[in-house]
């Protein structure tokens, strides 16, 4: 296992779940209860020193019990290493602790995750939609079960369809 993953495992034996390395990327899967503490550790520990937040993302696995995966990717400018921290949340209890207090940039990225996937973040200063309108009623667009086909506004232009069907 990658030394960084080993360090995390040693520090957080309960929170650490697994580590994967593929194509040179290190990804660590942790329990969501431990996410905040691990984030704090990655930021503050001099050996980690991950001061730069790269992105926060989310993946939807509708067939799995813990449906959503929240992905944080952080980077250390000094040590030049990149760590991806992933955690899973079930759909009925869709909360993760926000890491905004550790990396302020997480605010916008987490808002985007909330907007697109519907995962909420505890202690987030401003948990609102960001790209979709605030009153967007139709759910979360990047979920796999978001309806793809609908009667869009283009369908109301008869002339566009006339040619195609006649």
């Amino acid at each position: 296992m990658h030394p960084i993953a080993e360090t995390i495992q040693a520090r957080f034996p309960d929170g650490f779940l697994s580590a994967q390395e593929w194509r040179g990327d290190l990804a660590v899967t942790v329990k969501r209860e431990a996410l905040h503490a691990i984030g704090r550790f990655l930021k503050d520990d001099p050996a980690m020193d991950c001061d730069y937040i790269v992105h926060v993302s989310s993946v939807d696995w509708p067939d799995e019990e813990e449906r959503f995966e929240v992905v944080y990717e952080v980077y250390s400018i000094r040590h030049r290493h990149r760590i991806r921290v992933k955690t899973r949340v079930p759909e009925h209890d869709c909360y993760v602790d926000s890491l905004t207090d550790i990396w302020p940039g997480a605010e916008f990225m987490e808002r985007e995750v909330f907007d697109m996937m519907g995962i909420r973040f505890n202690n987030h200063p401003d948990m609102r939609r960001i790209l979709m309108p605030d009153d967007f009623p139709e759910g979360y667009p990047l979920r796999k079960d978001f309806p793809l086909q609908g009667k869009g506004w283009r369908d109301s232009f008869d002339f566009l369809n006339e040619g195609a069907t006649s």
Partner: peptide, 8 residues
């Protein structure tokens, strides 16, 4: 006329 932009 937008219709003419549907090239057949």
């Amino acid at each position: 006329d937008k219709r003419t932009l549907m090239f057949d």
